[in-house]
Design a protein around this nucleic acid. Structure first.
Lengths: 243, 243
DNA sequence: AATTGCTTTCCGTTTATCGGAAAAAGGAGG
DNA sequence: CCTCCTTTTTCCGATAAACGGAAAGCAATT
């Protein structure tokens, strides 16, 4: 099944590209595939609308199928009707950017971002990026809310042996506090607070988080943000629990 | 490149499936592919995370890559920061569901939906579906705003020869009125009003529309909605034009 | 007009895909 | 607990489909 493998590699390259566009020779160079091979695969991908080629510049970019299926999945997950309005509310309350992440394997995908309209500062984690589950407040909140055996399996693949005990202690602190916080873990100068969200069956379906600048922050503000993020998490959980 | 073709066919089947899940034998039956072939392809797709298999039920469903790339594309299009807040505002104003569609070939994809929190009635076109450009108010608004040669090419592939003249007249009416409306075209009992949205370069990037129940509707309400949708279209256009 | 830097097509070789058939795994019923 | 049936997974030799080097097109640039 190497055609698929190569296609997905190409999709990944395009997704990370500067303007989301690359020439056939650039792709060939970066992937190590021969030009003719690359050309043939791109033709095939284009027929499936996985990529499209700019008529003028000949550059390739990702096609519409990704969004098509992506949006359908998104819409099938109660986001639009149940979760997003709560995120909007939280964002208006705290006047900061608010995120929703969703676990997927050993990582979480940033599913949703609401930028505060009143706060010009944008930390702007892009939607769709994957972040390992041990990094950041949102992901640690997710881990802390998962059943123990699953946590153990994930921790054992992500964290070197000698650091695991510290990490388990950290997770327990998150459970005790009811929220997770991180400072400068992914982006220097920024911090975030987060809580996990469970569906009606008790499954962890993601985490709500607030991202903000970690500069000259008073303790009261931090307490306020963590209070608000917990409230939002509660409200979403109740919405999902009720059906 | 038949592996790709088959994979995308499978993705399409899964996307249309009941709960978004199908067994390998169901897939094999519906696609006409041999079980072993289907199994091999699904394994390959699973390695690329295009599908995932439920550990208990063995059923397959679409994997996370679609959302990953879909969200990144979505985020690269100014939706989150510029367009969505205006849709929220429009939805709050008119207390109805608001949509954003985006053209892609001869069709448009429903990119965004804001359900009014105060109005319990949900028409609920799902996100991600493709609708031919000659169907519905939003899509006709898009067509009416496109350059003439492009319109002609699209109309000639979508509409039978004897009905084209009527259609061109309809498009001109939309241009004159400044908005498009449709009644029961896709879903009986529902109607919508829409305007096209252009970016800074004058390219049509989509249409904003309001969907509502077409029952006992006074003329004033219709005039109000069309007025509001045009205002929202203007605001978005100006945001995009400014950069 | 010639050069350069790309994209696209050609085509003989080879290798990865194909799918029928057999094996394994899971349930349902006795 | 065992048997029968359904569904999933693995095997493997034949074959068609992908491979990629090289040549041909195409379009700016000098």
């Amino acid at each position: 099944m190497q055609a698929l493998e190569r296609s997905m590699k190409i999709a990944a390259l395009l997704s990370d590209a500067d303007q989301g566009e690359m020439s056939i020779s650039e792709l060939s160079a970066q992937s190590g595939l021969a030009l003719s091979t690359m050309h043939r695969i791109l033709q095939g991908m284009a027929r499936q609308r996985m990529v499209e080629q700019d008529e003028q510049t000949k550059l390739y970019r990702l096609g519409p199928v990704w969004m098509e299926y992506g949006l359908r999945l998104y819409d099938s997950m109660d986001y639009v009707t149940k979760i997003r309005p709560e995120l909007e509310r939280l964002s208006r309350e705290v006047k900061e950017s608010v995120y929703l992440s969703r676990p997927s394997g050993n990582e979480a995908i940033v599913m949703e971002r609401i930028d505060s309209e009143e706060n010009p500062i944008r930390i702007n984690d892009p939607l769709g990026i994957r972040i390992p589950l041990h990094i950041g407040a949102a992901n640690k909140a997710i881990l802390a809310a998962m059943p123990e055996d699953r946590v153990r399996r994930i921790v054992e693949t992500l964290i070197p042996e000698e650091k695991r005990d510290d990490f388990y202690i950290k997770l327990q602190q998150i459970r005790d506090a009811g929220f997770a916080e991180s400072h400068g873990e992914r982006t220097p100068g920024t911090a975030s607070v987060a809580v996990a969200v469970k569906d009606g069956l008790g499954e962890v379906i993601g985490a709500v988080s607030i991202g903000f600048l970690d500069y000259g922050l008073e303790n009261e503000r931090l307490a306020y943000l963590s209070e608000k993020v917990m409230e939002a998490g509660d409200r979403i959980g109740r919405k999902l629990g009720a059906g």
